[in-house]
């Protein structure tokens, strides 16, 4: 498999505070790589390092095979663009002027390409309005347009949907999917909104306390997520005894509700429950969410 970005034992400390600890990550080409982690897990720091905004304390990374301390990495960076925390745009310029500046920085002429980008992100009608007067969603979309100016192959997006309204979230999601599918752009995206991330990502990297604790593709994740049955029952103790009889894991949610993990048929479950004097009122399939997978992984239910 070809990787756009590989990090190896990447560490970053600010004075005595270590933010990244031996972070090892591989971003496959053409993927939408979701970086998942709590606040302060080190996601933004990792992205800053990869963008060259900061230098690692130890460890290394390579971008398109070019080591971070090799001069050739600057050529690799020309294929990369990023929005870290907030979009990088000149607040005193219009959307079009911002794109003109970006094209000029890249040594390219803007013209139709700038118009196409504005159309792509839905900012064609902003006219002479300065970016400083844009809404957060408009700024975010302009930031994405600016990053796309040089036709990059790899985009890093740090919390791109933070602060967006539901419609904005859908627009950004569709834009990212469109870029990935139609232009084969690799996207590294971090987000707190895991349900949203699960609609985008083809690969995941889970971060905790500066470590990448697990890397997994979306397919593998789907397979490894535990299936469960959500049961509405008449007696919780009876349910517990029946689950133990079937040698299955369970979780009592309330007096009348419980989760049953593992593979079993509804028939055998009903039989076991009735032998324990417990009535099964309703039963539904329940897939474990990305959020609970992550919480299980980090061993707690901290702030995700």
């Amino acid at each position: 498999m070809e990787y756009v970005l590989k990090t190896e034992n990447l560490c970053k400390s600010y004075r005595s505070h270590q933010v990244l600890r031996d972070a090892t990550m591989n971003v496959p080409k053409g993927s939408v790589y979701g970086l998942v982690g709590r606040n302060g897990a080190g996601k933004t720091t990792l992205m800053r390092l990869v963008c060259g905004l900061q230098t690692p304390t130890s460890g290394s990374y390579s971008l398109y095979g070019a080591a971070y301390n090799d001069p050739s990495v600057n050529f690799a960076r020309k294929r990369t663009c990023a929005i870290i925390e907030a979009p990088s745009i000149y607040q005193n310029m219009t959307a079009r002027e911002n794109l003109d500046v970006q094209f000029s920085l890249l040594g390219m002429s803007s013209g139709k390409a700038a118009d196409d980008l504005l159309e792509l992100v839905g900012l064609t009608d902003t006219g002479t309005k300065k970016a400083g007067h844009f809404s957060l969603g408009m700024r975010q979309r302009l930031g994405i347009a600016v990053t796309l100016a040089g036709n990059p192959d790899f985009i890093l997006l740090d919390e791109p949907i933070n602060g967006l309204d539901p419609q904005g979230i859908v627009e950004i999601r569709e834009l990212i999917l469109k870029l990935n599918r139609e232009k084969n752009i690799t996207v590294l995206i971090s987000s707190h909104i895991l349900s949203e991330l699960s609609l985008l990502a083809t690969d995941y990297g889970f971060m905790d306390k500066g470590h990448i604790i697990k890397e997994i593709s979306a397919r593998e994740l789907e397979r490894s997520m535990r299936k469960s049955m959500r049961c509405v029952i008449s007696s919780a103790p009876g349910f517990a005894r029946a689950a133990e009889k079937l040698a299955l894991e369970y979780e009592i949610i309330s007096d009348s509700e419980a989760l049953l993990f593992g593979n079993t048929t509804v028939t055998s479950l009903v039989e076991a429950l009735s032998s324990e004097g417990c009535e099964l009122i309703t039963v539904s399939g329940n897939d474990e969410s990305l959020e609970s997978f992550f919480l299980d992984l980090i061993g707690g239910d901290g702030n995700v």
């Binding site: 060259g52 960076r77 020309k78 990369t80 663009c81 990023a82 870290i84 925390e85 600016v146 890093l156």
Partner: peptide, 11 residues
């Protein structure tokens, strides 16, 4: 404006 970042990230 964060535009200094852009200059670094594009190489």
């Amino acid at each position: 404006d964060g535009t200094l970042r852009t200059k670094l990230t594009i190489g």
